[in-house]
Design a protein around this nucleic acid. Structure first.
Ligand SMILES: [Mn+2]
Ligand SMILES: [Mn+2]
Ligand SMILES: [Zn+2]
Ligand SMILES: [Zn+2]
Lengths: 132, 132
DNA sequence: TGCTAGTTTATAATGATTCTAAAAAGGTGT
DNA sequence: ACACCTTTTTAGAATCATTATAAACTAGCA
């Protein structure tokens, strides 16, 4: 089905757990931001069998390594992930502790004038903190 | 002396420990980035008496709240702080796990076109990840 | 139907950070 | 200097997200 090839092509065996996690993560109208704790709850709701927490961690890290998920740089006691892997930015609402997507097109072009010898830019991420 | 008024004006008692931590943090030619673990080591080297880890945490958080330190949004198992409290950005060298300042002037003007109702922008921070 | 490497799992370990509550120190007024 | 009250420091315990462990399970393949 839908995710079997995706996983196979990444060198990941399409196990029952991984396919179920794919459904929770990617069978949605909209992309979303989540912590492992959020995802664990979503899985409990949507998946009949139990998936261990260790497997959730393993899978999220495997998917991140393959580029199917992105980590969002933010100061929190929990790591935030994003199913939106496009080149985009974020608002962070300090009061509600919620992330909001900020599309590339919603931010004027960013020009990094400083160069670091022997290094090249891998990504440019903007975090806009919001208050009331 | 130098930091007593600074602390008093913030409503913080100028204790021996706080003054010593001020010296470690602010009596430097250049600003720097650090984790609590980094700071603990620096203090051990530069301060004769012992300062407990709890006090280091308390002090860093107090200074951050007063605006004498900034937290840097980055994904790491440890929280990074910055003695440079100017409005600036960062390179993050993924290999060396080092932060490098990117002055406001080294980044073209950033224009956030999207508005969120009832919220105003508190800060705009750019993180530029570097690879070889 | 085996075989083997990859995967899942319960559980333990790790480690940064926060909490606790008692002792110490700062500030103020006498 | 002293008493008094509040803030701060401190050692140690607790918390909790994350990672490690190692045994059981499974996907893919001969
Ligand atoms: Mn983290
Ligand atoms: Mn943190
Ligand atoms: Zn996003
Ligand atoms: Zn900096």
């Amino acid at each position: 089905m839908k995710y079997i090839d995706k996983l196979r092509n990444s060198g990941l065996r399409p196990t029952k757990q991984r396919l179920q996690i794919c459904e929770v993560l990617f069978d949605t109208e909209k992309t979303f931001h989540f912590t492992i704790n959020d995802l664990e709850k979503k899985i409990k709701k949507q998946v009949s069998n139990k998936i261990s927490l260790a497997t959730i961690y393993n899978t999220v890290h495997a998917f991140e390594k393959k580029g199917y998920l992105k980590q969002i740089p933010i100061n929190s006691n929990q790591t935030y992930f994003d199913t939106n892997i496009s080149d985009h930015h974020h608002f962070y609402d300090l009061k509600d502790e919620k992330l909001i997507d900020l599309e590339h097109s919603d931010v004027g072009p960013i020009n990094i004038l400083k160069k670091i010898d022997g290094k090249k830019i891998k990504s440019v991420e903007v975090l806009v903190k919001l208050e009331d």
